[in-house]
Design a protein around this nucleic acid. Sequence first.
DNA 1: CGCTTATCTCTGTCCAGTCG
DNA 2: CGACTGGACAGAGATAAGCG
Length: 332
Amino acid sequence: MVGKIIFSKVLEMPLVNYIRFIEKTTKQYLEFDKKKLFYAKIMIRDGTLFFEVPDKRLVNIYSTENYTKNKIICSLIWINTRNKFSLHILRNLLHYQSKYWFSGKEIDLKPLTYKQFLSLYPLQYLDQSRLSRLIPNLSVMTPQNQVINLKSLFISKKKYHSYLIKEIVDDNENPLKDKDIQYILTQKGINLSLRTICNCRKSLNIPNYREKDSYYYEKDITFNDYIMLSKKNLNKIPNDAGVYELSISSKIDYLNRRSNVIYIGSSKNLRKRIVNYFGNKLKNNCLKNFINSYDTFLRFCLTGDHILVEKTLLKNFRSIYGMLPKANSVGG
DNA sequence: CGCTTATCTCTGTCCAGTCG
DNA sequence: CGACTGGACAGAGATAAGCG
């Protein structure tokens, strides 16, 4: 009984702690770089995928014969089991997500849940609860030299569908209605309700067919999700250079069409700039009025070329809406 | 060398609001 | 008015966590 509980703890150990645990059990202490620690490195040679585990202790199967103490034997068995699990998981993920390993692009990930993985690649004693305890503690280096967590290979159907929809929308010059997207997906053998497609679009900030030609920014600018403008959320804004957009929840009339956007700006330090909005330093009265009377939302895009990008965005905005955002046009 | 429960996430239904 | 999207919500399903 107690053994099971402790075994769960062994599975939950981050790699650093796990290696310490192995060292303590085997009394073999070795130097290793704690900061650059990952379970395995995945490589491609001659068009074949394979991986290397730099730290052999993570794959070793230890013999229990030389020990008499029950406690040590238990620990060694746990280590052996975790090593077996890890190897099994990585081997099969290499196979299942092979397209992704080659390209490094999220869109090439196939949807996968823990449950599915277990039914595809069963292993004795490996169950859902153990999988969910071990996976988040395993990181690997991809052929593209990025360290990723194995958890990110288990993407939900929703994410998978979202990426598909993004691809479809990006590939089509014409604005697509959700029904059009649904039809294209059906041809690929995927049946989704309109509501789900709508949700997927929203999760990746993909415009709907009405909004598509009213976007004043190009595909290559990706804003973060909307953040409510409040003191509480200041820590979500990075101290980096970029452009930002302020909007309110209701639409405002512009010359050509309506929009929620009230201001577009840029700064060398986004957080510092936004902090100013809460003091008395804000001189733009129009903006001040908006912020005081409505819930205001912020989103930003980090870029070193913030001044140039801001200019382009304002120009685009004017050509689509007939005028600058309300709070930009006055005194700005 | 699990089982159970709490919590989170996803997906579809219903309906309201917007646009032309 | 019809066509369409988006919000609230509920049921189902997946995952994280508690425990003997």
